[in-house]
Design a protein around this nucleic acid. Structure first.
Lengths: 291, 291
DNA sequence: AGCCGAATTCCACGGAGCGGAAGGGTATTT
DNA sequence: AAATACCCTTCCGCTCCGTGGAATTCGGCT
């Protein structure tokens, strides 16, 4: 159905569920707390509608009201977020290894998973005495611009890779890989070497090294990366520690290829119903995090 | 079955926003992934309604579908959760100090903020070689049952304390403080000593030590706690490190009483009656839907 | 005071969303 | 192999809920 209005501000005909979600969607890192009117303006909803929905969200705990009368995201959302397969179990399992890795390398450590064309960081351990990197827990960046993202992309399906390569690839620095052919070549290298080393792709004078993490069916489910200031240390020297950590995490996740010594260890009493195409991590944790 | 009998599940006349939220609400730590039908049953919504709403949520990223066709909470929720004032900035600021604290003590570290009558953990650093404690990031427990919760309660408004004491106080172990008078006495001790030391209140054979963290207006905005196995170390020996960390975090948050170089903190008179809005504690929900 | 913006409440109308029912798929049972 | 029992998906008419405009209150600023 053609849109009859030539108005630049057409009414997007939202469903009521979309209205609710659009309210949550106006919050971002630059808008951590917003007044009712601001929410109304940014969503395009009328003030009365916004008022009613915001109150329902607040009662449920999805929004909270701070001292100045403004609204921000509520703790209930934080709780919910820990229930994601990635942010919950995967992060939980990986965390001790990431701590060890940071302790050993004193660098910034990131753990990321794919979502859409982006990579989302489900953990970000920042070193105190190194360059600040623009990545935080919950942060999202295009895959082609980060070391961890390129690792994930390299191990994605062929069609997905082409889909990403065909999209608009934003250039962040002069080093950002945006040429499809160059990227294809780079991704092949990453697959072959098992590690991605990038320099100043997203941020100048920052080097990143990243390797994949595999899950129960040996699929790449996440990537772990280290970022250090350019020239501080040889990136290659970080690879062994990084690889070891990634392998430990993979093993803890039940990845066959990372199984210790003998045959692939299978989590007992855990019936895996044959799944068609599992792009996400399996559900239950083997439960051997501690010692 | 359309009989409006006095069934335990009567039709609660939900608004459409509540329907959306109720879908998100059926996920918890024991139900990390649910099929469409399960969501439908647990929410009480009809299958077709559930189907439509779930799809809208999935398109937006609030839900994701895993390989086996089940749904779980989506990464977008995780991202949103990092935008909460507590889970975002506060956690971000506190994290390095908590890491140091864990490194020094090798114990479980928790950072919690109040919500309703509960305490919610916005960070949980688990020691590898100690007892497992039933607390995870995003976990929620009654204030009266945890060391951190008791600290927060002790520094809440008088009326809020009474409100909590008047509510049903669940007993988790034989040590759980459930008697209002005993609790009042304990809370007074906590205020006086500036630290809460509890033993096996929530979990047997686990000791917890917790101290408050103060924000810009010197309000207690969070609590940090350590848990160790009973008898392993003297809880008192952990207090100095814990207090130092809490003070560092308070200072980083801009708490006047923790300002660098200032005079030793005096046992503040807590008659700060003019609590305008304490951003967190005074979070009641007077606005009831409908009305 | 007067002005302005924000927040809150009220109400009638219209169409979005609800739910019943039917169709198609897949695994489990007889 | 037929039968059974789920589960997921789609369609469509009716109804009731949500919408948005207007009116009211509140608070800050000149």
């Amino acid at each position: 159905m053609a849109v009859p209005t030539g108005d630049s501000l057409e009414s997007p005909r939202l469903t009521s569920a979309q209205r609710v979600l659009s309210i949550l969607g106006v919050f971002d890192t630059e808008n951590l707390s917003l007044s009712l009117s601001e929410i109304s303006r940014r969503t395009g909803l009328t003030l009365s509608t916004t008022h009613r929905l915001v109150n329902e969200l607040r009662c449920w705990g999805a929004l909270s009201r701070s001292g100045d009368g403004k609204y921000s995201i509520g703790l209930r959302i934080l709780e919910l977020g820990t229930l994601t397969p990635q942010g919950g179990q995967l992060r939980e399992i990986a965390l001790p290894y990431l701590h060890d890795l940071q302790h050993a390398t004193r660098a910034n450590i990131h753990l990321g998973v794919p979502q859409g064309h982006d990579i989302v960081y489900i953990e970000s351990l920042r070193a105190r005495d190194t360059v600040p990197v623009p990545s935080r827990l919950g942060g999202r960046w295009p895959m082609h611009a980060t070391g961890t993202g390129l690792v994930l992309l390299a191990h994605s399906s062929q069609e997905f890779q082409e889909e990403v390569l065909a999209s608009k690839l934003r250039r962040y620095t002069e080093n950002t890989l945006t040429d499809p052919d160059a990227l294809r070549h780079f991704l092949a290298e990453v697959r072959k070497a098992g590690v991605a080393v990038v320099e100043s792709q997203l941020t100048r004078d920052v080097m990143a090294v990243a390797v994949p993490i595999r899950g129960p069916r040996d699929h790449v489910v996440a990537a772990v990366g280290i970022t250090v200031p350019s020239g501080s240390v040889s990136p290659r020297s970080l690879v062994p520690a990084l690889s070891a950590s990634a392998r430990s995490i993979s093993r803890a996740l039940g990845a066959p290829s990372a199984a210790a010594g003998g045959p692939p260890r299978r989590p007992a009493h855990w019936q895996v119903r044959e799944v068609k195409y599992s792009t996400s991590v399996a559900q239950r944790e083997p439960g051997l995090v501690g010692g």
